[in-house]
Every structure is written in C-alpha cells, then in structure tokens.
Computed example of a mutant assay.
Amino acid sequence: MLGTSDLRFFAAIAAVPSLAAAARALDVTPPAVSQRLAQIEQRLGLRLVERDGRGLRLTSEGEMLAGRAGAILGDLDALAEDLVQRRGTVAGPLRVVAPFGFGRRHVAPLMAVFARLHPSVTLDLVLTEDPRGAMRTDRWDMLVHVGRLPDLDVVRRKLAANRRLLCAAPAYADRHGLPDEPKGLRDHRCGVVREDQADVSLWSLTGRGGVRRSIRIRPSFAGNDGEVVRAWALDGLGIVERSEWSVADDLRAGRLIEVLPGWKLPDADVAVLMNPRTVRAARIEAFVEHLAGALSPPPWAAP
C-alpha cells in the first residue's frame, strides 16, 4: 500500500513542526504536501496528522507509522551502506548539516570540490541553526558545528580553531564611541544572532589575569542569520558578537574594528559530529579528511 517514497515523505513530515516546514524540507509547495498527505491518508483509511493553529501533531496512527517508517528506511539505508562498504569505494549520499553562514561560505564550496573528485557521491546539504532538531531525523551523516558542542554521544573531531569577537563599524565608533570596560556595553546598541535556543544576550568575557565579566545586554537588533546581523553591523547599527571566520576579512580591511580587544570571549571552534550509523563509510571518512585539510590552517586566520 505504501512505497519507499511514501515512507520518506511521511518521515519528513514527522520531523518538522508544520506542513510549511515540510514543504521547505522537501522543496515543494505547501499545497503539494497537503495533497500527497491526504492521498496517503485516504489510501490507508486513517487520519495520520492533526492540524491546528499551532502547527501539526501526529495522531497515534501517525506516530506508529513514523516510527516504523524510520526503522524501515534505516534498514534500507544500512543495506545500501553495507553494499557500498564492501566495494570500499567513495560513493553514495553525503548528507551534511551545517549552520547557515558557515555552511554557505565554507561547507557548500568544499562539498562541490569533493563531488568533482568523487562523481559517485551525491550531495545533500541542510543549513539550519537548530542542529539538535536536524539530528533527530537520523537523515544525516555529519554535522558541521561552530561553537560549544552539543552534549551528544557521537564521534566528533575538531576541524579548526575559531575565536569569537566583539566588533563594530568605524562609523558607529565615530558617532557613539566604544566601551573601555565590559560593563560599558550596556550603554551601547548591540545586535545578537538567535541560534540553537542559546542565551545570546549574556556576553561572557575574560580579561587579563583571568578576570571574568558577564554582561546582560539589551539587544537593539537581532536575527536568526549571522550574516544579516554582520551586514547590519557593517551599516553602523551597533556592536555585534561574531565568529572570526565571519568578520576576519572585514577587520583586515577596516570595515569593522574590534571592540574590547583586551577581553576574550569563549572560543567557537569548528568541529564535525558524525552519525554512528555511517561514521565508518568510506565517503564519510574521505570527506572529513577533505574538510580537515581545507580548514588547516583556518583560511580566516591572519597570514
């Protein structure tokens, strides 16, 4: 009654909070998702999803189908993995999860190079600021992560060092000056990136001699895309906390200047986390080495 494509379709719906999100994940229109879901429910004679103003909720039958679909798809993928492994070739799907900005600037280009080197690999990149949510689907091989690592029992490897910096445009500094001490940040316009449900308005800094200061700022602007917040900082809107990989070129060119250079924010190293189910696949091992080689030394570090 249901084919593999139906199971993959429903697994995608079960992994997201709304049909609109499912449409984005499947790269189709919301009406197409609704229509196909209705067809599956009609074929089974069962209601699988309840929809209300807060999103979607799986019925008990939907929960059962999602669980069984995940197991069946996992077995099929494992079978394909085993067959590829027996050949020892770099082939098959390469499913990578990465943050928006870093994924666009570094991961996507490196995946393209890897695919040219290994034409039997198929690329699948998901950009998100909710890595835990992306990993719940089990439809991933590796997660490229920037910052504090999630507390997960998976194989991980550090790829590159990456500092976090406070910075602002010279135009902002000319108009408002810059703080001499962390507590002065409270008197300035500051911007934050909302990511992974972190407390982004609490900035913790360490000074000379290990002196620590935690400052609660009141954001004047915020967004869920770090490159948008960086662009606002370039426009002179205020002080932002950004990764070195994002602003190194701006600092060298003088488009941004470092704020409180004598104080250090927690590092946000770049690491890769690997799915236990596919960690030993030849394509995974090869791509991790490809990433590590390309990011050592980090391309954003000063020459």
Rank of each mutant, 00 (worst) to 15 (best):
E181D: 12
E61R: 13
R132A: 12
L7A: 15
A292G: 02
L94D: 04
M1V: 11
A25K: 11
R255F: 13
L125S: 02
A32V: 03
L205D: 03
G226E: 14
L65H: 14
L44Q: 13
I215F: 04
L152G: 05
E244F: 02
T59M: 09
A71N: 13
D267M: 02
H188K: 14
M135V: 10
D267Y: 00
G67Q: 10
P179W: 07
W232R: 07
P170Y: 01
L37T: 01
V33T: 10
G62M: 09
R164K: 10
G254I: 03
R189H: 14
R157T: 12
L149N: 05
M1N: 05
L143Y: 12
R105N: 15
I217R: 05
L295A: 09
G238N: 12
A22D: 09
E129H: 14
R277I: 04
A231E: 15
I284Y: 00
A21M: 07
D187W: 04
G254K: 04
V288T: 05
P303S: 08
V272S: 01
F10E: 15
Q35S: 04
H290Q: 09
M111N: 05
A282R: 00
A222C: 08
R36W: 10
G3T: 14
A271G: 05
D138Q: 11
A161W: 08
L260N: 00
A91G: 00
A80D: 13
P31Q: 05
A71G: 11
L37G: 10
V272Q: 00
E244K: 01
S243N: 15
H176S: 11
A171L: 06
S34G: 06
R186L: 11
G53N: 04
L127F: 06
D267L: 01
P119A: 01
D130K: 11
V247I: 15
R86A: 02
I217L: 09
T278P: 00
G45P: 06
G67V: 10
P131L: 12
W263G: 03
D249Y: 09
V126N: 05
I40L: 15
E41T: 15
W140H: 10
E63V: 08
F221N: 11
R242H: 14
R216Y: 03
A294C: 07
V259Y: 02
L265W: 06
R213A: 13
A23L: 12
W300S: 07
F221I: 08
R136D: 07
S120G: 03
D27W: 06
A12M: 08
A98I: 15
A161D: 12
V121Y: 01
V84H: 01
G210N: 03
R132H: 07
R252M: 01
S5V: 15
L117K: 03
L58Q: 09
V33S: 10
F102W: 14
D130F: 10
R95H: 05
G70D: 12
P93L: 01
A253S: 13
V211S: 08
H290G: 04
W263L: 04
V240A: 09
